[in-house]
Design a protein around this nucleic acid. Structure first.
Lengths: 214, 214
DNA sequence: GGTTATACATTCATCGTTGTATGTATGTAA
DNA sequence: TTACATACATACAACGATGAATGTATAACC
């Protein structure tokens, strides 16, 4: 076939990623041949190899398309020095879960990343990126909880670090459980209510705080 | 080679699983050939195919060897109708994390199951088993939290269901984070302290627990 | 003590996938 | 208009893995 215009090329590129999402989701990353991906996208392997160096690169591009909503919202939060850091964190978490529950693409891609691919050498940069993102999130949350502690808003038995680590772990655990059994644990209802309760428990109650100070 | 005695056969069987743990951990399940596993175990593929139908069956056997300590401890707990269900749950969780942190085999196998294999059709029975185990745990925890609620020991903003789901999600999230970056988040210290704080927040009567034994 | 089932090793046939090399027609810039 | 870069399609070479079939020597059993 003949050369396409730049616009069309970009379209085929994203069509290939779309196809990869479908195929990887269905068969797992390793067992999906690029031949299949190409066929699903309506092109040949030539096109795939033109746009992407190899399979890991394609997966990387796929992961890049869905930046976790989490992260940039937290960035903004941490910058603006709010007076209600815990409530802000809570709404970010809730928002994350709710959007996740609705966004089919995100769900599929996360399923692929969590349950349909194997993290080994060639995936190293993907791993590194994911870890960096996770660490960034925890560190930002820790900063916000630290601020909450200064404002006497964090329950005394939580350190900022513990709260941040636990928050992240809880969210990831909920999402993972939901991915494993989407019908069993509704993210938007059950998951969100867990997060609500968790955040209530993070907040200092005036009375208990006074008692624990004595 | 010649036929071995039953005892020796059992030894080669577990040697194969041992080898599979190493090889799967290093290269991921899909990219590990049974040839490599056999070589690592000091046998040939013939032996592997004799003991296991195929690769998923081998993986299944591998997963079977490490029953989560979680589960049977919870079974006993739920049966004995203790007067301190929350504290009991807490010590089970802490114990789980601490043993996990020490047991290298368990860590490797969990890493394989979480990050080095792809869950697709042929893994269906493994998935089913894992989900069943998880659901059983959540359901037992829910029962215990329900008992705690009857005893007025559960903080009012937690429902038993939420508490159970959150507990499981937290544990899984912590373990996953630890598997991803073993050096970053020490399970036995950071993880355990998160769980401690979480369980304090589950308990009713803020004043009593902050000051009392922990 | 002979037979049979066992516990493997060896061999074979087949198939899918990968990366690359090459072909080709067209958009685009000079 | 030419000349080159682009966006693919097609073709090729090579390997590795799988499952099954077959071989075989010994342990276990009667």
């Amino acid at each position: 076939m003949a050369r396409r215009t730049k616009d069309e090329a970009e379209k085929t590129r994203s069509a290939i990623i779309d196809a990869a999402e479908k195929v990887f989701f269905a068969h797992g990353v390793t067992r999906s041949s690029l031949e299949l991906v190409a066929k699903e996208a309506g092109v040949t392997r030539g096109a795939v190899y033109w746009h992407f160096k190899n399979k890991p690169a394609l997966l990387h591009a796929m992961a890049q398309r869905i930046i976790l909503p989490h992260e940039d919202m937290l960035e903004k939060l941490a910058a603006q020095m709010s007076q209600t850091p815990i409530d802000d964190l809570r709404s970010v978490c809730i928002h994350t879960l709710k959007t996740m529950a609705k966004d089919k693409r995100r769900r599929h891609v996360l399923t692929i990343l969590f349950m349909r691919c194997e993290y080994i050498e060639e995936m190293f940069d993907i791993i590194k990126r994911q870890n960096a993102s996770k660490n960034r999130i925890v560190s930002l949350a820790e900063k916000l909880f630290s601020r909450a502690k200064d404002l006497k808003m964090l329950a005394p038995f939580w350190t900022p670090r513990q709260a941040a680590v636990a928050m992240e772990a809880l969210i990831i655990g909920l999402i993972l459980g939901w991915l494993e059994q989407p019908k069993r644990t509704n993210l938007a209802t059950v998951g969100a209510s867990c997060v609500e309760a968790f955040f209530i428990s993070l907040k200092a109650e005036p009375s208990s705080y006074v008692l624990s100070e004595s």
